[in-house]
């Protein structure tokens, strides 16, 4: 019985082994898996963004579900909606979008900015995308400035304050943190040559930075090994009889094809020589 679960398992095994095959060398299996990943990711993100934000939160606010028969300008406004609905009823269902919103025409501004962003593809109208970009950059800068100032500067300065009266362990930790912070900042001060006392202090800063890089490397290794464990779990699981030994069959297939390719390449290079 070939269920979707079994087909999915075979597909997952194939893609995992195809990606792993890059460890041997670049090859068509790896390329296929890589391209598939990029394409599926882009499509998946676009689709999710549309159905979780644009359709319910943008269109849902511009054309919310009608509770009574519209008249006048509102009727004309919903006439546009009905026209869109003629193209795709799934996105624009009859009578408006029921996502719990009320009509809010201010959302025409993000709607227009979104359309401007897409106009980047046009040579003549591409300049309109700058308005959208300006909005995004301004918003992000303003939003991030507040967050960083409050949480990364003020709170961190407060957090690195010396705490000498909460026991020996805490006091020593506090001293290490404050020495590390100050010497690290000295190292990144480039307006003065790193010589003499200044040079010695910044050298201590380098040591702290190196410890930090070492810890980062250790965590990176830990993360990568965890991911490898995750893939091995699936490969072990899918090697079972309920999945028709997918791992063994596909591993053998990929090894044989790559081996054959390597054999042919060697033969060709010998002939050329």
């Amino acid at each position: 019985m070939y269920t979707t679960e079994i087909i999915g398992a075979w597909f997952a095994v194939f893609l995992t082994l195809a990606i792993f095959s890059f460890l041997y060398k670049d090859n068509p299996f790896y390329k296929a898996a890589e391209h598939l990943f990029v394409g599926v990711s882009a499509g998946y993100w676009a689709s999710t963004f549309f159905w979780t934000q644009i359709q319910p939160n943008l269109f849902g606010r511009l054309w919310p579900k009608l509770t009574e028969e519209p008249s006048g300008i509102k009727a004309a406004w919903y006439g546009i909606y009905d026209f869109f609905g003629w193209f795709h009823e799934g996105i624009f269902p009859g009578g408006g979008i029921d996502k719990g919103h009320e009509l809010n025409l201010f959302y025409l501004i993000p709607f227009l900015l979104g359309i401007f962003m897409l106009l980047r593809l046009s040579r003549k109208l591409g300049w309109l995308a700058r308005w959208s970009m300006a909005y995004v950059v301004g918003l992000a800068a303003g939003l991030r400035l507040y967050g960083f100032l409050n949480s990364n500067i003020l709170a961190q300065v407060r957090g690195s304050a010396l705490s000498l009266f909460d026991g020996w362990g805490t006091a020593i930790n506090s001293i290490i943190i404050i020495v590390g912070t100050l010497t690290g900042l000295f190292y990144f001060f480039f307006s003065k040559e790193h010589t003499g006392v200044f040079g010695k202090i910044s050298r201590v800063g380098i040591w702290f930075l190196m410890v930090s890089f070492g810890a980062a490397f250790g965590f990176a290794v830990m993360g990568r090994i965890s991911l490898l464990i995750g893939r091995f779990y699936d490969l072990i699981q899918f090697s079972g009889s309920q999945y028709y030994h997918a791992t063994y069959w596909l591993l053998a297939l990929i090894v044989i094809i790559l081996g054959f390719q390597a054999f042919r390449e060697r033969g060709r290079s010998t002939e050329e020589a």
Partner: peptide, 17 residues
Amino acid sequence: TASIQVNEIIPYENAGQ
């Protein structure tokens, strides 16, 4: 968090955030 992010997160933990 994922291991790779721990170094970035630990200062917030140390500062009581």
